[in-house]
Design a binder for these strands. Structure first.
Lengths: 191, 191
DNA sequence: GAATATATTTGACAATTGTTAAAAAAATCA
DNA sequence: TGATTTTTTTAACAATTGTCAAATATATTC
């Protein structure tokens, strides 16, 4: 996949949310810059401020931080690096790392805000993205709350089988709120 | 607090997000309707579709659902009843209940969408609300993941002492992902 | 204020999950 | 391919949390 293909993927992605005119899409696209990421490369590290949004068509990012005991906790697999930091301007609580080598388009917060003023549709797009992110978090919360670890894992298998296939189990475990050893036991007891 | 006061509280609340002209605020206000809720009254029940946003200046709502075993799980204390259902149009997964008798202003989704067309600022307000809700969920997620129950409780005490004071502990426990008995033990061991 | 309902705590025990250290399996890289 | 790194599994044991049933405490209602 090269820069042009990625651009087309972005176009398809945006179509799911809103119809942009060709001019609007060009306006937006011109402010995105293309970049290659190495596997394990960090998009952002904890304490840094996140001032951009990333689009990618291949691969996931991993969000992680360290708890009180210094254990690494994976909190999400997503594509907007530290959305909270992006919105608030506060330092990011999470590290965001490319799970595989990938190509991305990135746009800065300030450029995006300029576009809001120029194009109403682009602001509407931003609203719908925020809504989608809110829905995503709510879904993760719902998964975590009030279910046993086994149920959580089964639900993830059903709803996001691609996660289980492409993401190391140690990170899945963390996303489910358990240790990798616990997940391993659960997998054993299921099969 | 009467209808007029609630309206002023709404004005103050909105100011935190965006400056609306007096005309825009009137436009918005006219579509909100005033309503009194009894303690324990449900704003929405699971399986219903949520087609409105609520504003209140006094009191919380409780979001809850039942897990596989029929145990009641409290997932949030918030003021937009089932935001996911509101956005997607899908049936709500949660019940939303007034924690105390309160007065609210409510606006329907269709009215709100009409306003988006009439006023750009009101759409911007909607974007900022979505962003705030996304941040809220992320914060809750972060609290749940990778910390012991005791740490979670202490963190909640620090950051949201008003929750501990005004919300029954059984619901707090659930919000922290544990049983009321566990929370009771934790409180005992802390004091 | 007494009666009733709701919320919180307690204790004994069971089940789940975490911890540690090590082995086995799989993936990566030169 | 072979060596190295990373990931996953295993096992024994410890710690945490859940379950159930009952007692206490608190709040609500008439």
């Amino acid at each position: 996949m090269d820069s042009t293909n990625l651009r087309e993927a972005l176009r398809d992605y945006i179509k799911k949310f809103i119809h942009l005119s060709e001019e609007e899409f060009e306006l937006l696209c011109d402010l995105f810059s293309y970049r290659k990421l190495e596997k394990r490369e960090h998009l952002i590290k904890a304490q840094e401020r996140c001032d951009r949004i990333i689009f990618t068509a291949n691969g996931y990012f991993r969000f992680y931080h360290w708890n009180d005991k210094g254990i690494e906790i994976t909190s999400d697999f997503y594509f907007v690096p530290s959305y909270t930091s992006f919105l608030t301007g506060d330092p990011s609580l999470v590290n965001v790392q490319a799970m595989e080598s990938m190509e991305v388009l990135e746009i800065s917060k300030s450029d995006l805000e300029k576009l809001y003023v120029k194009s109403r549709n682009i602001e509407t797009l931003a609203r719908k993205l925020a809504e989608m992110i809110a829905i995503n978090s709510e879904r993760h919360l719902f998964l975590l709350l009030g279910q046993t670890a086994e149920t959580r894992y089964k639900e993830l298998m059903e709803k996001y089988p691609q996660y289980i296939q492409s993401i190391p189990l140690q990170y899945i475990a963390s996303y489910l709120g358990i240790t990798k050893e616990s997940l391993s036991r659960i997998r054993k007891s299921i099969h």
